[in-house]
Simulated assay, not measured.
Amino acid sequence: MRPRTVFIVALALLAGCATAPHQTRNVCAIFDQRDGWFNNWRRAAENTQREYGVPVPILMATVYAESGFSPYARPPRTKLLGFIPWTRPSTAYGYSQALDGTWDKYQRETGHWGARRSNFVDAIDFIGWYHEQSHLQNGIALNDAYSLYIAYYVGPKAYAQGSWRGNASLQATARRVAGMAALYSNQLPQCE
């Protein structure tokens, strides 16, 4: 093979590793699209479930809601004077949409210093860790997708204060996450 052809093939393979799956409403399709020698999402999700006790469907539904399985997701930039791209409203980034400070805390507490928010294995582990923190701090059941998502979005402290109760939009999103987790749960036994 010519060097240029090798480079193009390698670039195409790398690009395939860094793109979001196309069928995000079917957990089996997500795993089929992303599982391979370099990239086994199902194994990563199952390992996280074993470590933190959070079911795979809830982990995957959280990724679905936060980033749509996009490794480089960020909040849209605000506009200066209505049209000039400006700053982002938060430091949320990657599959988990983890904020800089929360990600730093995760790295310190777990010792995963090389973890990256754009790496699915790291991001799914973060989500499991974060949901476990919500469980430990607020007594949220690890199979309660609705409440875990609200605590994930507002943080365990704000969850305990109950300020989210007046946020109809967040509650609607949490219901969608719970619905997606239920859908994934029904699909998961059918995955090969």
Rank of each mutant, 00 (worst) to 15 (best):
H131Q: 15
W103Q: 08
L142K: 13
Q97A: 13
A141L: 11
H112W: 12
W129H: 15
H135L: 10
D122K: 08
Y95Q: 04
N138C: 15
A123G: 01
N143T: 11
Y146N: 08
E109Q: 12
F126G: 04
T110N: 02
W129N: 12
G111C: 03
Q133C: 01
S147Q: 10
W103F: 14
S96D: 07
R108G: 13
D125Y: 04
R117H: 14
A141V: 06
E109C: 07
D122W: 10
L142P: 02
W129R: 15
Y95L: 06
G139F: 00
Q97F: 14
G94S: 09
I84M: 12
P85T: 05
Q107C: 14
G94K: 09
I124K: 06
Q137L: 10
N138D: 15
Q137A: 13
R116I: 02
T102V: 11
G111V: 05
F126L: 09
I124P: 02
W86S: 14
R117T: 09
R117K: 14
Y106D: 04
E132I: 02
G128F: 00
W129E: 12
G139H: 00
K105A: 14
D144I: 01
Q137Y: 08
L148P: 08
S96W: 03
R116E: 09
E109K: 09
A151N: 05
T102Q: 09
Q107Y: 11
T102H: 07
L142I: 09
R88Y: 08
S90E: 13
W113E: 15
N143K: 11
G94Y: 09
Q133N: 02
A141N: 11
G101M: 11
Y93D: 00
T102Y: 06
S147K: 06
G114V: 03
Y152H: 13
Y152I: 12
